[in-house]
Design a protein around this nucleic acid. Structure first.
Length: 901
DNA sequence: TAGCGTAGCAAG
DNA sequence: CATCGCTTGCTACGCTA
């Protein structure tokens, strides 16, 4: 089984930006190709040749068999489709809204576009012969040119010029490697980024080359240079664009980055994750040595923690601030800004961490000045590093990271009181020496007591107490809140349950296990019961006995609950895309995958002000959760984003009421992954013997490509026949739909298939059942921005009727002048509404049907204005809509249809 | 009764 | 100016097969 190190090939575009031949293949084609190579059926071409000739395996291997009688069958298929349509339409006439109908469409790869491309190549040839373009010796010999968007001169004229002068006119950007030049007059930013590695030039390149009768250097006509110059602001009219430093608009592409850069909580979380990862790394590295086994009750632990870490470090970095005299707080602002950390002088006035600055100001006497310091995240890291270095140098058997400023250190034997004293003092003086900050230390023979003694030791001190020394007097001064795992909510529960406010730990110790469990639940009750006796519960002790499992990452998530203000679902979609990208990048670097995604949406409470008192804060919100199982682990941003967007819609939160978003991935178990799962879940595998048989020169390349795609090489797979197990395209297609839609499609297929075979009665029963279900579903989810709102076109909401209408419209206008502008505008609006509602399958189906229609009429009307107009509509209106959601577009890419225009 | 999805909580 | 309310993991609880 090959390892899965970080993929070196990720997005690695070579000069010229061409994808390598292997990269351009779909998984199936790749596997097919490998197996053929292995059997010597396909000639392994040298790199150069492969690049230029670029055999379309998809065509060679899979099309050929079907090609012959495909055209003949086409009309028949179409009729059959229509019949099915009618049958369903009939059966569902009374349902009124059959919006969720999808049909078992064959989205096979031998599609309109391939047929079309073939035909057009042939046409070009005819054209060239007819008008006597140079056979060889043409100006554009060897150039494959693609025209993007509106140009001047127009597409048709350029097409003619290119073909007549020996060039190849590329109609669709299906495999980007096939294109040598792209001609465009203007490109939107997104496109520019996408195509930045291509030779993109203005149409004048073609015109001028023909004029001068030689191929001019394309660089002189580079579109990007021209556009960059055009976009540069005039120096006097516009003020210099400031470097955007503080982006607080969540619609801005760099919002996440900016927000995180300033968020203390984000820093705390990621520091913690880093520390844990680092710990694991070391732990595994050292596991060749005898691993530090902690025997039950035979250890000493020190819980070590900085005194008001942020405040101390920030004060150290600021001259004229004395942490022992001035009341210091660390915060961003002056009013509704959270206090991240305050020193003990400030605490004397009742100021606490988490309090708003405005509140703190009120607590301070008029003659005292509250010192507000800003965060210095870099310095926090520096101090923390020094801190952990000290701990490592002290040669504890275990240094368990709790957070940036806090650690639990373990000695795997019981130390005498004197030894404990010495150790505590040693730690404190060493840290003070290296960081100029004070830490406090709690020391005991259990984790929980170390934690409690630490509380007592603060600030700037240490305390030692063993389980046997624990008595009433120690507990008397402590509150339930001091127990680990007990927060405000549990305190309230306990105080209510025991009718004692405030509640003392000494009192609580007297209550029975049973009583505690009734109050807070089984496990928590037990945990508190044990803690009051100085003992660790099993869950907490795991940290000592099996730190590896405790520190192993089990989930990955992103939470944004500040600055979230959107107006439209598109903006939210974009935001989801960015969040997903952020997470999948991490997934990639962790080399892990997810198969369960949870979306949490924070929605403004009905009675909460639009703008809460905290600047850009979330205010009071209602949370909504939705989780989805993918069935197959993935790290593909496209698949994941589709899923999340779908979940978002199903929660029906109006865009303007959104105040927070969280996306969480449950991670696959690291040990089970890749071996058992791959086989169980039918991920494609390449047989090791097949791989071994590959010619040497290709083997390495193929190996890298397989790794990039996370396709395993299996020694176990059957040596002989099917070299891989790849699911059908239909299945693949389904895999990439949002689960919710997928379920509907599946359901539909099942019903259609069954209805074909079974008796009328059964069919009706099914339909009744489904109607019922659909009704319930609908009742549940009807709301703003729901995906289930009926979408109208020409006063019609039934999709099958709409399809009929559109097809009639297409048919009726092809022989003439094409669609009327007004009609087109209405159609465009309808498509937008579909797109807004994420009704991808409907859009796909519509696109596919129009494409098929054009295909059918091509022979007869191919040269008519109407046909060409419609072709333009397909390429510039319909398909770009599918492209708009790049993530869903993936589905399409896999099918080898390229919807780029 | 196990397993699932959702919600809530605590921690730093 | 404001302000940067994250992220992980456990537990409880209600529901359903």
């Amino acid at each position: 089984m090959g390892g899965y190190e970080d993929s070196p090939l990720k997005n690695e575009n070579g000069a010229g930006g061409e994808r390598s031949f292997l990269e351009s293949l779909s998984d199936d084609s790749l596997l097919n190709y490998i197996s053929q190579l292995s059997q010597g059926q396909t000639q392994a071409l040298p790199q150069k040749q492969r690049e230029s000739q670029r055999p379309r395996l998809s065509q060679l291997v899979e099309h050929q068999e079907k090609w012959g009688d495909r055209d003949k069958d086409h009309d028949k298929d179409q009729d059959k489709d229509q019949d099915q349509f009618e049958a369903q339409a009939q059966a569902q006439q009374d349902e009124g809204q059959d919006q969720y109908q999808y049909r078992d469409q064959e989205y096979s790869r031998d599609d309109y576009f391939h047929d079309k491309a073939r035909q057009q190549l042939a046409q070009d040839e005819v054209f060239r012969e007819k008008y006597g373009g140079g056979k060889g010796g043409g100006i554009f010999d060897g150039c494959s040119i693609y025209i993007n968007g509106f140009t001047r001169p127009g597409r048709l004229q350029l097409h003619e010029m290119i073909v007549l002068h020996g060039g190849r006119f590329v109609h669709y950007m299906s495999a980007k490697g096939q294109v040598s030049h792209i001609v465009a007059s203007n490109l939107p930013l997104k496109k520019r980024v996408e195509l930045r590695n291509y030779k993109v030039c203005r149409p004048e390149w073609i015109v001028d080359s023909i004029k001068t009768k030689r191929l001019l250097p394309w660089q002189n006509y580079s579109l990007f240079q021209a556009q960059d110059q055009a976009q540069r602001p005039l120096p006097l009219l516009l003020p210099p664009v400031p470097v955007e430093e503080n982006v607080v608009d969540c619609k801005h592409p760099h919002f996440l980055e900016q927000f995180f850069a300033h968020s203390r909580l984000h820093h705390l979380s990621s520091w913690k994750a880093d520390l844990r990862a680092h710990f694991l790394e070391k732990f595994i590295e050292n596991s060749s040595n005898p691993p530090p086994q902690v025997a039950p009750n035979q250890f000493t632990v020190l819980h070590i923690d900085f005194d008001c870490f942020f405040a101390s470090v920030a004060a150290l970095c600021t001259p004229d601030v004395d942490i022992s005299v001035d009341p210091v707080v660390v915060c961003h602002g002056t009013k509704s800004s959270d206090i991240a950390s305050c020193n003990y002088v400030a605490r004397q006035y009742g100021i606490r961490n988490g309090m708003w600055v405005s509140h703190a100001e009120k607590l301070i006497p008029a003659d005292v000045k509250l010192v507000r310091l800003s965060y210095n995240f870099d310095q926090f890291e520096v101090k923390s590093k020094a801190f952990y270095q000290v701990l490592h140098d002290l040669e504890f058997q275990l240094v368990l990271p709790i957070s940036i400023d806090e650690a639990v250190c373990c000695v795997t034997r019981r130390l005498s009181r004197e030894q404990c004293e010495e150790l505590c003092q040693r730690v404190r003086s060493m840290v003070a020496l290296k960081t100029a900050c004070s830490v406090s230390v709690g020391c005991s023979d259990s984790l929980v007591l170390a934690r409690l003694t630490l509380k007592r030791a603060k600030p700037d001190g240490y305390q030692i107490l063993t389980q046997s020394e624990l008595d009433q007097s120690f507990l008397t001064g402590l509150k339930p809140r001091d127990l680990p795992g007990v927060g405000p909510s549990l305190v309230d529960k306990l105080e209510t349950h025991f009718q004692q406010r405030p509640l003392d730990l000494a009192q609580l110790q007297e209550s029975s296990l049973n009583s505690l469990q009734r109050c807070v639940g089984e496990k928590l009750g037990n945990k508190i019961y044990l803690a009051l006796r100085g003992k660790d519960d099993e869950e907490s002790a795991k940290m000592l006995y099996d730190p590896q499992s405790v520190f192993q990452r089990k989930s990955l998530s992103i939470d944004i609950n500040w600055g979230v203000r959107f107006d439209t679902i598109h903006e939210i979609d974009q935001f989801i895309d960015r969040c997903t990208q952020y997470l999948t990048d991490k997934l990639e670097s962790l080399n892990r995958a997810t198969s369960q995604i949870t979306l949490r949406v924070m929605r403004r409470c009905k009675d909460e002000a639009i703008e809460p008192s905290k600047y850009l804060g979330m205010g009071r919100c209602d949370p909504f959760n939705r989780s989805t199982r993918l069935g197959v682990p993935t790290s593909e941003p496209g698949i994941i984003a589709t899923e999340v967007k779908s979940s978002f819609r199903s929660l029906g939160c109006p865009p303007r009421d959104l105040r927070g978003i969280a996306i969480q991935f449950k991670l696959e178990d690291v040990r089970k992954r890749r071996t058992a799962l791959q086989q169980q879940l039918k991920l494609p595998l390449v047989d090791a013997s097949v791989y071994e048989n590959l010619p040497q020169d290709v083997k390495k390349e193929v190996g890298q490509e397989l790794k990039r795609r996370k396709i395993g090489i299996s020694k176990a797979a059957k040596a002989a026949s099917p070299a891989f197990r790849a699911s059908s395209y239909e299945e693949r297609f389904m895999q990439e739909l949002p689960t919710q839609i997928r379920q509907e499609v599946r359901n539909d297929i099942r019903i259609t298939k069954k209805a074909r075979k079974t008796k009328l009665g059964e069919m009706q029963e099914h339909i009744l059942k489904r109607q019922e279900k659909a009704k319930n579903y609908k009742a549940h989810f009807l709301g703003e921005a729901s995906i289930f709102e009926p979408i109208q076109f020409q006063g019609e909401t039934r999709f099958k009727k709409i399809i009929h209408m559109v097809l009639e419209w297409v048919d009726g206008t092809i022989p003439g002048e094409g669609p009327h502008e007004h009609d087109l505008h209405l159609f465009d609006k309808y498509l937008n509404r579909l797109s807004d509602a994420n009704r991808l399958p409907l859009m796909l189906r519509l696109a596919k049907l129009v494409a098929t229609r054009l295909d059918l009429r091509c022979e007869k009307y191919g040269s008519s204005n109407g046909f060409q107009e419609w072709e333009k509509v397909l390429l510039t209106v319909i398909l770009p809509k599918l492209n708009k959601n790049k993530h869903t577009f993936q589905t399409v890419r896999k099918l080898d249809i390229d919807f780029d225009t």
